[in-house]
Protein backbone atom coordinates (compact mmCIF):
# COMPACT_ATOMS: atom_id res chain seq x y z
CA UNK A 1 0.00 0.00 0.00
CA UNK A 2 2.81 2.41 0.92
CA UNK A 3 4.42 1.68 -2.42
CA UNK A 4 1.17 2.45 -4.28
CA UNK A 5 0.75 5.73 -2.41
CA UNK A 6 4.36 6.60 -3.14
CA UNK A 7 3.85 5.95 -6.87
CA UNK A 8 0.67 8.04 -6.89
CA UNK A 9 2.30 10.93 -5.03
CA UNK A 10 5.38 10.75 -7.26
CA UNK A 11 3.23 10.90 -10.39
CA UNK A 12 1.40 13.90 -8.99
CA UNK A 13 4.68 15.63 -8.20
CA UNK A 14 5.86 14.95 -11.72
CA UNK A 15 2.64 16.50 -13.05
CA UNK A 16 3.19 19.52 -10.79
CA UNK A 17 6.73 19.85 -12.13
CA UNK A 18 5.42 19.80 -15.72
CA UNK A 19 2.70 22.34 -14.96
CA UNK A 20 5.17 24.63 -13.18
CA UNK A 21 7.46 24.46 -16.19
CA UNK A 22 4.47 25.18 -18.45
CA UNK A 23 3.45 28.13 -16.27
CA UNK A 24 6.93 29.67 -16.23
CA UNK A 25 7.30 29.30 -20.00
CA UNK A 26 3.78 30.51 -20.64
CA UNK A 27 3.84 33.56 -18.40
CA UNK A 28 7.32 34.61 -19.55
CA UNK A 29 6.30 34.05 -23.17
CA UNK A 30 3.26 36.26 -22.73
CA UNK A 31 4.90 38.96 -20.60
CA UNK A 32 8.09 39.25 -22.65
CA UNK A 33 6.24 38.78 -25.92
CA UNK A 34 8.15 35.67 -26.95
CA UNK A 35 5.59 33.83 -29.00
CA UNK A 36 7.75 30.77 -29.58
CA UNK A 37 8.24 30.30 -25.83
CA UNK A 38 4.55 30.84 -25.21
CA UNK A 39 3.63 28.30 -27.90
CA UNK A 40 6.11 25.76 -26.57
CA UNK A 41 4.75 26.13 -23.03
CA UNK A 42 1.95 23.83 -24.14
CA UNK A 43 4.37 20.88 -24.51
CA UNK A 44 5.02 20.54 -20.76
CA UNK A 45 1.33 21.31 -20.14
CA UNK A 46 0.26 18.37 -22.33
CA UNK A 47 2.93 16.19 -20.73
CA UNK A 48 1.66 17.20 -17.28
CA UNK A 49 -1.87 16.35 -18.33
CA UNK A 50 -0.72 12.94 -19.55
CA UNK A 51 1.16 12.20 -16.33
CA UNK A 52 -1.78 13.38 -14.24
CA UNK A 53 -4.18 11.25 -16.26
CA UNK A 54 -1.99 8.21 -15.54
CA UNK A 55 -1.96 9.14 -11.83
CA UNK A 56 -5.75 9.46 -11.71
CA UNK A 57 -6.36 6.18 -13.56
CA UNK A 58 -3.77 4.42 -11.39
CA UNK A 59 -5.40 5.64 -8.18
CA UNK A 60 -8.88 4.87 -9.55
CA UNK A 61 -7.83 1.25 -10.02
CA UNK A 62 -6.43 1.06 -6.49
CA UNK A 63 -9.33 2.63 -4.60
CA UNK A 64 -12.02 1.20 -6.89
CA UNK A 65 -13.90 4.43 -7.49
CA UNK A 66 -13.57 7.70 -9.37
CA UNK A 67 -11.68 10.72 -8.06
CA UNK A 68 -14.48 12.30 -6.06
CA UNK A 69 -14.20 11.39 -2.39
CA UNK A 70 -11.00 12.31 -0.57
CA UNK A 71 -9.70 15.90 -0.83
CA UNK A 72 -6.58 14.78 -2.71
CA UNK A 73 -8.71 13.01 -5.34
CA UNK A 74 -11.16 15.91 -5.63
CA UNK A 75 -8.50 18.60 -6.01
CA UNK A 76 -6.42 16.56 -8.42
CA UNK A 77 -9.42 15.79 -10.67
CA UNK A 78 -10.51 19.45 -10.48
CA UNK A 79 -7.05 20.45 -11.72
CA UNK A 80 -7.23 17.88 -14.51
CA UNK A 81 -10.69 18.94 -15.67
CA UNK A 82 -9.78 22.65 -15.50
CA UNK A 83 -6.86 22.02 -17.83
CA UNK A 84 -8.89 19.81 -20.19
CA UNK A 85 -11.78 22.31 -20.29
CA UNK A 86 -9.33 25.10 -21.11
CA UNK A 87 -7.64 23.12 -23.89
CA UNK A 88 -10.99 22.07 -25.39
CA UNK A 89 -12.44 25.60 -25.29
CA UNK A 90 -9.22 27.01 -26.69
CA UNK A 91 -9.70 24.80 -29.71
CA UNK A 92 -13.25 26.16 -30.19
CA UNK A 93 -12.39 29.76 -29.29
CA UNK A 94 -8.70 30.47 -30.01
CA UNK A 95 -9.11 34.00 -28.66
CA UNK A 96 -9.12 32.73 -25.08
CA UNK A 97 -5.51 31.51 -25.43
CA UNK A 98 -4.09 34.14 -23.07
CA UNK A 99 -6.26 32.86 -20.22
CA UNK A 100 -3.48 30.27 -19.83
CA UNK A 101 -1.66 32.86 -17.71
CA UNK A 102 -4.24 32.19 -14.99
CA UNK A 103 -5.38 28.64 -15.87
CA UNK A 104 -1.90 27.05 -15.77
CA UNK A 105 -1.02 28.36 -12.28
CA UNK A 106 -4.49 27.48 -10.97
CA UNK A 107 -4.00 23.94 -12.26
CA UNK A 108 -0.64 23.41 -10.62
CA UNK A 109 -1.78 25.05 -7.39
CA UNK A 110 -4.79 22.74 -7.22
CA UNK A 111 -2.73 19.62 -7.78
CA UNK A 112 0.01 20.81 -5.45
CA UNK A 113 -2.62 21.40 -2.79
CA UNK A 114 -3.96 17.90 -3.46
CA UNK A 115 -0.55 16.42 -2.62
CA UNK A 116 -0.62 17.95 0.85
CA UNK A 117 -3.69 15.91 1.77
CA UNK A 118 -3.28 12.31 2.80
CA UNK A 119 -4.33 10.23 -0.22
CA UNK A 120 -5.62 7.40 2.00
CA UNK A 121 -8.14 4.97 0.55
CA UNK A 122 -11.73 6.09 1.11
CA UNK A 123 -14.39 3.49 0.56
CA UNK A 124 -17.40 4.51 -1.48
CA UNK A 125 -20.77 4.39 0.32
CA UNK A 126 -23.10 1.97 -1.49
CA UNK A 127 -25.48 4.77 -2.56
CA UNK A 128 -22.60 6.35 -4.49
CA UNK A 129 -22.68 3.70 -7.21
CA UNK A 130 -24.86 5.55 -9.69
CA UNK A 131 -24.20 7.07 -13.11
CA UNK A 132 -26.15 10.15 -12.01
CA UNK A 133 -23.59 10.74 -9.28
CA UNK A 134 -20.81 10.62 -11.87
CA UNK A 135 -22.70 13.15 -14.03
CA UNK A 136 -23.45 15.29 -10.97
CA UNK A 137 -19.80 15.53 -9.99
CA UNK A 138 -18.45 15.82 -13.54
CA UNK A 139 -20.65 18.79 -14.40
CA UNK A 140 -19.66 20.66 -11.26
CA UNK A 141 -16.02 20.11 -12.15
CA UNK A 142 -16.58 21.26 -15.75
CA UNK A 143 -18.40 24.28 -14.36
CA UNK A 144 -15.40 25.09 -12.16
CA UNK A 145 -13.14 24.83 -15.22
CA UNK A 146 -15.22 27.33 -17.21
CA UNK A 147 -15.46 29.65 -14.21
CA UNK A 148 -11.66 29.66 -13.91
CA UNK A 149 -11.49 30.86 -17.54
CA UNK A 150 -14.07 33.55 -16.75
CA UNK A 151 -12.01 34.47 -13.69
CA UNK A 152 -8.95 34.90 -15.90
CA UNK A 153 -10.79 37.41 -18.09
CA UNK A 154 -12.27 39.26 -15.13
CA UNK A 155 -8.77 39.64 -13.67
CA UNK A 156 -7.44 40.72 -17.09
CA UNK A 157 -10.14 43.36 -17.27
CA UNK A 158 -9.22 44.77 -13.89
CA UNK A 159 -5.51 44.75 -14.76
CA UNK A 160 -5.99 46.30 -18.16
CA UNK A 161 -8.11 49.07 -16.69
CA UNK A 162 -5.44 49.83 -14.14
CA UNK A 163 -4.09 53.37 -14.31
CA UNK A 164 -0.71 52.15 -15.56
CA UNK A 165 -1.30 48.82 -17.32
CA UNK A 166 1.76 46.62 -17.90
CA UNK A 167 3.24 46.49 -21.37
CA UNK A 168 2.29 42.85 -21.88
CA UNK A 169 -1.33 43.83 -21.37
CA UNK A 170 -1.21 45.33 -24.84
CA UNK A 171 -1.33 41.79 -26.14
CA UNK A 172 -4.68 41.25 -24.57
CA UNK A 173 -7.79 41.95 -26.60
CA UNK A 174 -9.68 45.20 -26.10
CA UNK A 175 -11.37 45.61 -22.69
CA UNK A 176 -14.81 45.19 -24.31
CA UNK A 177 -13.79 41.82 -25.73
CA UNK A 178 -12.24 40.71 -22.44
CA UNK A 179 -15.45 41.67 -20.68
CA UNK A 180 -17.46 39.70 -23.25
CA UNK A 181 -15.34 36.57 -22.76
CA UNK A 182 -15.84 36.77 -18.99
CA UNK A 183 -19.59 37.12 -19.55
CA UNK A 184 -19.80 34.20 -21.94
CA UNK A 185 -17.73 31.80 -19.83
CA UNK A 186 -19.80 32.71 -16.79
CA UNK A 187 -22.80 31.67 -18.88
CA UNK A 188 -21.15 28.32 -19.60
CA UNK A 189 -20.40 27.89 -15.91
CA UNK A 190 -23.98 28.77 -14.97
CA UNK A 191 -25.38 26.14 -17.32
CA UNK A 192 -22.95 23.42 -16.25
CA UNK A 193 -23.64 24.27 -12.60
CA UNK A 194 -27.40 23.92 -13.24
CA UNK A 195 -26.91 20.58 -14.98
CA UNK A 196 -24.70 19.38 -12.13
CA UNK A 197 -27.32 20.41 -9.59
CA UNK A 198 -30.13 18.69 -11.48
CA UNK A 199 -28.11 15.53 -12.06
CA UNK A 200 -27.50 15.50 -8.30
CA UNK A 201 -31.19 15.78 -7.55
CA UNK A 202 -31.95 12.88 -9.90
CA UNK A 203 -29.21 10.84 -8.22
CA UNK A 204 -30.71 11.63 -4.80
CA UNK A 205 -34.17 10.62 -6.00
CA UNK A 206 -32.85 7.36 -7.45
CA UNK A 207 -30.92 6.57 -4.28
CA UNK A 208 -33.25 7.54 -1.46
CA UNK A 209 -36.41 8.98 -2.95
CA UNK A 210 -35.76 12.64 -2.15
CA UNK A 211 -34.58 14.97 -4.87
CA UNK A 212 -33.79 17.91 -2.64
CA UNK A 213 -32.91 17.85 1.05
CA UNK A 214 -31.82 21.44 1.85
CA UNK A 215 -28.55 20.26 3.32
CA UNK A 216 -25.80 22.93 3.51
CA UNK A 217 -24.08 21.80 0.32
CA UNK A 218 -27.31 21.83 -1.68
CA UNK A 219 -28.44 25.14 -0.23
CA UNK A 220 -25.12 26.90 -0.87
CA UNK A 221 -24.94 25.42 -4.33
CA UNK A 222 -28.37 26.91 -5.05
CA UNK A 223 -27.26 30.26 -3.57
CA UNK A 224 -24.20 30.24 -5.84
CA UNK A 225 -26.31 29.40 -8.88
CA UNK A 226 -28.79 32.17 -8.06
CA UNK A 227 -25.88 34.59 -7.57
CA UNK A 228 -24.55 33.74 -11.02
CA UNK A 229 -28.13 34.17 -12.28
CA UNK A 230 -28.16 37.67 -10.76
CA UNK A 231 -24.80 38.43 -12.43
CA UNK A 232 -26.01 37.25 -15.85
CA UNK A 233 -29.34 39.08 -15.61
CA UNK A 234 -27.67 42.28 -14.42
CA UNK A 235 -25.41 42.09 -17.45
CA UNK A 236 -28.23 41.34 -19.85
CA UNK A 237 -30.96 43.64 -18.59
CA UNK A 238 -29.06 46.40 -16.84
CA UNK A 239 -26.09 46.28 -19.21
CA UNK A 240 -23.63 46.28 -16.34
CA UNK A 241 -20.12 45.69 -17.57
CA UNK A 242 -16.55 46.65 -16.87
CA UNK A 243 -15.10 46.98 -13.40
CA UNK A 244 -18.32 46.35 -11.47
CA UNK A 245 -19.10 43.23 -13.50
CA UNK A 246 -15.54 41.92 -13.02
CA UNK A 247 -15.68 42.51 -9.24
CA UNK A 248 -19.14 40.92 -9.01
CA UNK A 249 -17.89 37.90 -10.91
CA UNK A 250 -14.90 37.51 -8.57
CA UNK A 251 -17.28 37.58 -5.62
CA UNK A 252 -19.45 34.90 -7.29
CA UNK A 253 -16.33 32.84 -8.02
CA UNK A 254 -15.27 32.94 -4.36
CA UNK A 255 -18.80 31.89 -3.42
CA UNK A 256 -18.54 28.94 -5.81
CA UNK A 257 -15.27 27.86 -4.16
CA UNK A 258 -16.99 28.03 -0.76
CA UNK A 259 -19.85 25.91 -2.11
CA UNK A 260 -17.53 23.34 -3.61
CA UNK A 261 -14.92 22.99 -0.88
CA UNK A 262 -16.20 24.37 2.42
CA UNK A 263 -19.90 23.61 2.78
CA UNK A 264 -19.45 19.83 3.04
CA UNK A 265 -17.87 20.50 6.45
CA UNK A 266 -20.93 22.44 7.67
CA UNK A 267 -23.30 19.66 8.67
CA UNK A 268 -24.15 16.02 8.52
CA UNK A 269 -25.64 14.91 5.26
CA UNK A 270 -24.83 12.64 2.37
CA UNK A 271 -22.44 15.33 1.17
CA UNK A 272 -20.51 15.05 4.43
CA UNK A 273 -18.73 12.05 2.90
CA UNK A 274 -17.32 14.29 0.20
CA UNK A 275 -14.07 16.21 0.57
CA UNK A 276 -13.43 15.04 4.14
Amino acid sequence: MDKQVAIYVALNWLAVFCYVAATIANVSGVVFRKEVVERRSYYPAWLGLLVQSIAIIYWWRIVGHGPYMAPSEVLSSDAWITMVVFLVFMRCFPRIRLASVIVFPVTFLLIALAIFYNPGIRSLPPTFGSIWLVLHISFYKISLGTLVIALAFSIFFLLKNDRVPSAWMQRLPEPDSIDLYAYRFTGFGFIFWAIGMLAGSIWAYKSWGRFWGWDPVETWSLITWLMFGVYLHLRRFFRISGRFAACLFIFCFILSLVSLFVTSHMGSSIHAEYFQ
Binding site: L226, H233, F238
Partner: peptide
Protein backbone atom coordinates in the same frame (compact mmCIF):
# COMPACT_ATOMS: atom_id res chain seq x y z
CA UNK B 1 -33.95 40.99 -10.97
CA UNK B 2 -36.03 41.78 -7.86
CA UNK B 3 -37.52 38.28 -7.88
CA UNK B 4 -34.15 36.60 -8.31
CA UNK B 5 -32.66 38.72 -5.53
CA UNK B 6 -35.62 37.92 -3.25
CA UNK B 7 -35.22 34.19 -3.89
CA UNK B 8 -31.49 34.53 -3.27
CA UNK B 9 -32.11 36.39 0.00
CA UNK B 10 -34.63 33.80 1.18
CA UNK B 11 -32.35 30.87 0.43
Amino acid sequence: IGLILSALTAV
